[in-house]
Amino acid sequence: MSQFKIAVVVGSIRKESFNARLAEGLSRLAPSNFTFSKLRIDDLPLYNQDDDGNQAEAVKRLKSEIAAADAVLFVTPEYNRSMPGVLKNAIDHASRPYGQSAWAGKPAGVIGASIGSIGTALSQQHLRNVLAYLDMPTMGQPEAFIQVKDGLFDDNGDIGAGSREFLQKWVNAFAAFVERHAKV
Rank of each mutant, 00 (worst) to 15 (best):
I6F: 04
V8T: 15
V8G: 14
G11F: 12
S12Q: 10
N19A: 05
A20M: 09
A20K: 13
R21A: 13
R28A: 15
S32H: 11
S32A: 15
N33C: 02
F34K: 02
F36C: 02
L39D: 09
R40P: 02
R40N: 14
I41Q: 05
I41F: 02
D42G: 11
D43C: 04
L44Q: 06
P45F: 05
N48I: 14
D50P: 00
D51G: 00
D52L: 09
G53C: 10
N54M: 08
Q55H: 05
A56N: 09
A56R: 04
A56H: 11
E57H: 02
L62Q: 08
E65C: 06
E65P: 09
I66D: 03
I66G: 07
A68C: 04
A68N: 15
A71G: 11
L73Q: 12
F74H: 01
F74V: 10
F74M: 04
P77N: 09
M83V: 15
P84K: 03
G85A: 15
G85N: 12
K88R: 11
N89V: 12
A90W: 15
I91E: 02
H93L: 08
A94D: 09
S95D: 10
S95E: 09
G99M: 13
G99T: 08
W103G: 11
G109K: 03
V110I: 15
I111H: 03
S114T: 09
Q124V: 05
Q124F: 04
Q125I: 06
R128I: 07
R128W: 08
N129C: 12
M136V: 06
M136C: 15
P137W: 09
P137M: 04
M139N: 06
M139P: 04
M139V: 07
Q147Y: 03
V148M: 13
K149T: 07
K149E: 07
D150E: 13
D150S: 07
D150K: 06
L152A: 09
L152H: 08
F153L: 01
G157T: 04
D158K: 07
D158Y: 00
G162M: 15
K169V: 07
K169E: 12
A175F: 02
A176D: 14
F177A: 01
V178R: 04
V178W: 01
E179W: 02
R180W: 07
H181A: 10
K183L: 05
